[in-house]
């Protein structure tokens, strides 16, 4: 079982089960994690599924595509470890991944 931990900006933790092949954005939406919107359904074209990847995990993820970088540039409250969660697929290796959420997406 792959566990993913989403931490809302106010500290509320959601430890949820991830399904291999689904995106982190979809995983958050399926588990009613407040703070992820994901209007475009995972097509990297709305920048409303922004999250901060725990520094211990950041380098274990596939790098940002150019498309993701362009969209991310328009997101709010950017940090070094910002990613669009729709662009990260759940894999076995991501068991235990921690994603913190920004104070707001919009």
């Amino acid at each position: 079982m792959i566990k993913i931990c989403f931490i809302e900006h106010d500290g509320t933790e959601h430890v949820v089960e991830g399904e291999v092949g689904n995106s982190l954005m979809q995983t958050a939406r399926d588990n009613l994690v407040r703070g992820i919107i994901g209007d475009c359904g995972g097509n990297c074209s709305c920048a409303t599924c922004h999250g901060y990847v725990d520094p211990a995990w950041f380098d274990k993820l596939p790098p940002r595509s150019e498309e993701e970088s362009v969209m991310l540039d328009g997101a709010m409250h950017l940090e070094q470890n910002s990613r669009l969660t729709c662009q990260i697929k759940v894999t076995e290796e991501l068991d235990g991944l921690v994603i913190r959420l920004p104070i707001s997406q919009i």
């Binding site: 919107i37 209007d39 097509n43």
Partner: peptide, 18 residues
């Protein structure tokens, strides 16, 4: 807090939703 489909969903989702 369940998302809805008022802005559509997928590649054509409302570009002005925000």
């Amino acid at each position: 807090p369940l998302p809805h489909l008022a802005f559509g969903h997928g590649i054509h989702a409302c570009i002005g939703a925000i």
